[in-house]
Design a protein around this nucleic acid. Structure first.
Lengths: 150, 150
DNA sequence: AGCACTTGCATAGCGCGCTATGCAAGTTCA
DNA sequence: TGAACTTGCATAGCGCGCTATGCAAGTGCT
């Protein structure tokens, strides 16, 4: 089904891709402002979300669960190591692999960083009630799943 | 209202910011694949959407309507000039300003690029019916508006 | 054992966001 | 008119996505 637009501005106001990009930029920026005082960047926060669940993971395991490319993860981990958030230890089993371990500094950040992220979500979703929020998240998950297939 | 999560994975599956970022990345990547054959990048496409409506605009006018920073626009326009999509002419009225004009090459791309964007949207929204799509776009607009205020 | 294949990671190079900075040109106002 | 301010744009430098490439280490097969 082909939707016809009266003009380009119609497209911008209705294109899911355009809106998604704009929305993600605002989320990114808002989170960045909130966690910058912790010495944290948004991409690092995403990795920490995974590592707070349990560290001592290889880069490959992190790539699998975050759905980013291996090269992206390698660079993000390098910045996190530089910033004292993680250490990369040699694996005893596999000399190619490097085990990612959280520093105490990174562990201590958890509550503050989570609170910052929650605050940003709260601002973004201010005009949606609980039912709408659930529906919104569900729709995003469905859109993500559709693009991962197609 | 503070939502409590059982674990980090709950957060990832429910955080609007996390989902928005993931969704936008998939949109970006999908569009990139589709318009790459035209010699076009996603950021350039966004600018073209505006210029197809009417060119002979200054950089400042483009910045205002696309909601990106001036420096971002300057760099994107430089790449577009390099790629033969636009020319930057001196303004007769204001010697600081540069008027952005589309090349014929950029004008000719319009239909193909729009079709590519539509196709990407269609894949993404495949599992949503017309009513859900309208609701989804409406929710994104509300979330964007909320973050622009807060 | 030795060859091919796969896997884990690093690096180069680019797009496209951002902040910070600087300069030239325009504007305002005493 | 001249000084102070504002505006339009460029540039440097960084985060974080991507593709492409390469290498060392592991695996499998004959």
């Amino acid at each position: 089904m082909q939707v016809l637009y009266r003009c380009m501005d119609d497209f911008r106001q209705n294109s899911a891709g355009y809106l998604a990009n704009h929305m993600a930029r605002l989320f990114f920026h808002g989170l960045q402002q909130r966690i910058a005082p912790l010495g944290l960047a948004p991409g690092q926060f995403m990795v920490l979300l995974d590592l707070w669940e349990g560290d001592r993971k290889t880069q490959a395991q992190l790539v699998a669960s975050l759905d980013v490319e291996q090269a992206t993860m390698a660079n993000t981990l390098s910045r996190m190591e530089r910033d004292g958030l993680i250490e990369r230890h040699a694996s005893p089993r596999d000399k190619r692999a490097r085990i990612v371990v959280l520093t105490q500094k990174a562990r201590d950040m958890r509550d503050d960083a989570m609170a910052a992220a929650q605050a940003q979500n709260e601002v973004a979703l201010a005009s949606l009630d609980a039912q709408e929020r659930a529906l919104f998240a569900d729709m995003m998950r469905r859109v993500i799943a559709a693009m991962q297939r197609g």
